[in-house]
Design a protein around this nucleic acid. Structure first.
Lengths: 185, 185
DNA sequence: AATTTCATGTAACCAGTTACATGATTCA
DNA sequence: TGAATCATGTAACTGGTTACATGAAATT
């Protein structure tokens, strides 16, 4: 039905978590409110509707653990299509656009990737990521050289921060590739 | 009327830009679509309503440059209250929460800060920023030590990236402080 | 003459926020 | 027995997205 697997960041986060192990809405909220994944809202008004949407898409399925209680606890697990959609989303090519404006999504993708598709694909992702970051880095450097004089010291410092961030991401990716490559055979 | 200066990120970006020099909606869109500030949507459906909202708040005022054309060009400039609200927003203390979940907003604040309130206040901001980032860094490190063994290599790498990012931000801030301090007297 | 850029807007939609609401279970 | 935590949800609102729409001015 809905082909565009245009996962929102929140949906991706939820799908990825449930992919690791079945969770209830409350469990998801707990993860978002107590771990470094906490920049996602853990508000019920975000989580429960999102779970319903995702279930309606057929990517997860809720199972009622109603041990005679009135308040049923709904534990969601990934369906087969869900796993497929997730894997497809995670392994999409890394674009320039992603690197420029959706770095956080890329990191989220990485965090789930190894678990869903394994080491080889993860290394592939990281290589694309590194290449794209390095490309962007050099074009940013060029842009900066062009506008450097026209900017205030503050503007320059702000841009330096951007450069630093990309640089550290590139280095991290290269390091990660090495580690993953020598950890498996 | 509306006291809560709960600027959304987009409003802050617009307000900050207009604070540097008067701009039309089209000008704002152009900045968002051609500079590193481009992760803001430059879509008219975002910009024009936002400008109206901000104007209704009394923070900017549009002036029609209608050189007899039918399509008037609206150039917005910051009002006095606007400048006050902006300055107040930019100089708010840097919180742990900001550092954890709104790093991009902090960078945006920094980028405008020097222009709006000057070097001394900017340095103060950077010192708070550095301190808060360093504090968060050490608590993150601690958290990581606790959960390190329980995590997959992928999870560990993802967390490493987080640590790297904070580390580089802390270093950047310390460097920026030094530069700004020795650049003025 | 045709295309691109300037310039401003609206309408339908969607996702997320805040605040509210309910009630069971466990712990002090 | 009172508080905290478990557990799920709704309703009103807000802000941003996508797509549509219009037309002047400048460039090719």
């Amino acid at each position: 039905m809905q082909e565009k697997n245009q996962l929102s960041t929140l949906s991706l986060a939820i799908l990825g978590l449930i992919g690791q192990k079945p969770l209830s809405g409350y469990d998801v909220r707990k993860v978002f409110s107590t771990t470094p994944m906490g920049h996602f809202s853990s508000s019920p008004g975000a989580i429960y509707p999102a779970l319903k949407r995702i279930e309606k898409n057929g990517w997860i399925k809720g199972e009622v653990k109603n041990r005679k209680t009135l308040r049923p606890k709904l534990v969601f697990k990934l369906t087969d299509t869900g796993r497929k959609v997730l894997a497809e989303h995670l392994t999409r090519p890394v674009t320039k656009d992603d690197v420029m404006w959706h770095m956080d999504d890329l990191m989220l993708r990485f965090a789930f990737l190894g678990h869903v598709v394994g080491r080889k694909q993860t290394v592939k992702f990281l290589k694309e990521f590194a290449a794209e970051v390095e490309a962007h880095l050099s074009s940013l450097r060029q842009y900066m050289d062009e506008v450097r004089e026209t900017m205030s010291p503050y503007g320059r410092l702000a841009m330096d921060n951007g450069l630093d961030s990309y640089r550290v991401n590139a280095r991290w990716a290269r390091r990660a590739i090495k580690q993953l490559q020598q950890s498996g055979e």
